[in-house]
Nucleic acid binder design. Structure first.
Length: 264
RNA sequence: GCCGGAAUCGUCUAGCGGCAAUGACAAGAGACUGUAAAUCUCUCGCCUUCGGGCUUCGUAGGUUCGAGUCCUACUUCCGGCA
């Protein structure tokens, strides 16, 4: 009995201290597992995605919908207007604030995302010089450069796929994205923010726009987007590869692994 | 059937007598601590002791010191006339 109580206690303590990080290339399934994990662990999710930062880019950046979120609080989304400056430092400050807040309420913070730079900044605790607590974009020079040891209690899981599998997933996702009202989304974005801003540069929008302008057929646009997405996935993987602290698991193993980790 | 034109690395492409052969895309590897879904670098016929070696430009011959480049035939494809 005493042992069980002690276990429960250490479990409690662990719950309070560990931040779960679910990372992986685009299309690897981060969003859905992290929501599943959040439900099981009473957690809340912080997105680490440099594009989901922007408002209005919902379908194009594969943000989870309200229904998909299933009542799990999500942070790190819609933090800036398209075209507005938003840096790693801004994201790090936001994430740290949210992690502290989530922990203080006795819940588990779950970081889900594919932007390696953001995650590195968090776990290796990059310092950015400049006045903190100021409005977005007010940070200046870095003062610290260290990617050697993790600062903090993180469980870092990477979602592993073979190249063929991932490719197939990206193709499938592209098909879905292209029929989910993307055209309306992009029209609205272009209308409000104009065409020339970072949020729309170089992602699915440029290809859809090509279709709207009659320069591309739908199939061409889709193919181009898949290439683009694949290149992104490879770059993300290159970034993650050098991080020795990532535990790489197949998608279906991620949930059980995390649950077991927290049960012990 | 006749007359033109074309066949080059996974794909498209440069090449008009000195070439392992241009560029782009794809593919692969990598860098990246400040808008990162960005940006950039390297590899990309085969082998190499990194000096070089070997085999390539539809197929087979020929002309040349030398041929992806010129000639002949064949094959395939695209135009025009039939």
């Amino acid at each position: 009995m005493a042992t069980i109580a002690a276990d429960a206690l250490s479990g409690q303590r662990r719950r309070k201290d560990t931040t779960v990080i679910i990372l992986g290339p685009t299309g690897s399934g981060k969003t859905s597992v992290s929501i599943k994990i959040a439900k099981a662990l009473d957690g809340e999710i912080i997105s680490a995605d440099s594009r989901a930062i922007y408002k209005g880019t919902d379908i194009g950046t594969a943000k989870p919908t309200k229904e998909e979120m299933q009542g799990i609080p999500h942070y790190g989304l819609d933090l800036a207007e398209p075209g507005e400056r938003f840096t790693v430092a801004d994201w790090k400050a936001h994430a740290e604030e949210k992690i502290a807040d989530i922990k203080s309420r006795g819940k588990v913070p779950i970081i889900a995302g594919g932007t390696g730079l953001y995650i590195d900044a968090l776990i290796y605790d990059y310092h950015f010089k400049g006045p903190t607590g100021h409005k977005i974009g007010d940070f200046e020079q870095k003062t610290c450069s260290d990617r050697k040891s993790i600062k903090g209690d993180y469980l870092i899981i990477g979602i592993k796929w073979s190249a063929e599998e991932l490719r197939a997933r990206l193709i499938k996702r592209a098909d879905q994205m292209f029929c989910k009202g993307l055209e309306d989304e992009i029209r609205k974005l272009v209308q409000t923010y104009g065409w020339n801003n970072g949020a729309m540069k170089s992602n699915i929008y440029q290809f859809i726009w090509g279709v709207l302008e009659g320069k591309l057929t739908l199939d061409e646009a889709k193919a181009l987007f898949v290439y683009d997405d694949w290149h992104l996935a490879k770059r993300q993987l290159t970034w993650f590869k050098r991080n020795p602290d990532i535990i790489w698991l197949k998608l279906e193993k991620v949930y059980p692994y995390v649950i077991k980790y927290f049960a012990n």
